[in-house]
């Protein structure tokens, strides 16, 4: 692992991040630090651009202003080659696994190795089997992505994400749509891989309890701002009414149940209106 001046602090440092998608402001001055060797949760309601944050950290999307540093290097001022070298040190698990559908499980995990290394076939085989063993799918190596369940696809995606032994693994909504067993499997994997391989993990999710239970540090992001950050317990005990509404899943509160509208009585009494 490379060590820079920032070795003892954050692996990823986001400062003053602004990002808009068309007219919609997604981030409005967000600061985030992802500490090394820890699991950091990014939580927030759907549509707050949690996935966007991962894509910005990975350099796929460019912020309108603000900086994103990965291991002390500004991600968005790099030339393509340097950016690609940075990405080899990041693994990303997409929501649906994003497996290449024309390749078998084995070949999917071997893909980054074949693309970026000149390793002999026997070593690629050993490495792929090691990664698949880590996610418990060594026996599924000959299956194709269409034959896998959602949870298995994500585990294969995870094996692929750690194939190049990255410093950082980013998980995009890893628990969405999972049954309790495969959710438990994924949770255990994220935590144990992080500790066993000395990774740094970012888990984007809105499954509050699950993600808080495996993370060392958490951020709650909504309407373009960081609303709360700290350890799992400090988030649970936050006195922000918004955070409490989010954690407890209350239907009404600072985030209103009703979409913005004219008063109900006026709407009903409006005469001659078409709709």
């Amino acid at each position: 692992m490379t060590t820079n001046a920032t070795a003892d602090t954050a692996l990823v440092r986001v400062r003053g991040l602004n990002f808009s998608h068309g007219p919609r402001v997604i981030y409005d001055g967000v600061d985030v630090d992802i500490p090394r060797g820890k699991v950091t949760a990014i939580m927030g309601p759907s549509g707050t651009g949690k996935t966007t944050l991962l894509r910005i950290i990975g350099g796929q999307w460019r912020p309108s202003s603000g900086t994103v540093e990965f291991d002390g290097v500004n991600v968005h001022t790099q030339r393509r080659k340097a950016l690609y070298d940075l990405r080899k040190r990041m693994g990303m698990l997409f929501q649906n696994g994003a497996l290449l559908t024309d390749l078998s499980v084995f070949e999917n995990v071997a893909f980054p190795l074949r693309e970026h290394t000149e390793l002999p076939e026997s070593m690629i085989r050993d490495l792929v089997l090691m990664k698949l063993e880590a996610v418990g799918l060594r026996g599924a190596r000959d299956l194709y992505p269409s034959q896998l369940s959602g949870g298995m696809s994500r585990r294969v995606g995870l094996a692929r994400a750690i194939a190049l032994d990255p410093d950082l693994v980013m998980y995009d909504e890893p628990f969405t749509g999972q049954d309790p067993i495969s959710m438990g499997v994924l949770m255990r994997l994220i935590r144990s891989l992080n500790d066993a391989l000395g990774l740094t993990s970012i888990v984007v999710s809105h499954d509050v309890e699950e993600v808080l239970s495996i993370s060392d540090h958490a951020y709650v992001i909504a309407s373009g701002k960081v609303l709360a950050s700290g350890t799992a317990d400090s988030i649970r005990n936050s006195d922000s009414p918004y955070v409490q509404q989010f954690l407890r899943g209350q239907h009404d509160g600072p985030v209103a149940f009703h979409y913005k509208a004219v008063p109900y009585a006026d709407d009903l009494l409006r005469k001659g209106a078409q709709r």
Partner: peptide
């Protein structure tokens, strides 16, 4: 997301 996935794998 297969194309995005490749990009994130530096391919």
């Amino acid at each position: 997301d297969q194309l995005s996935g490749m990009e994130m794998m530096a391919v």
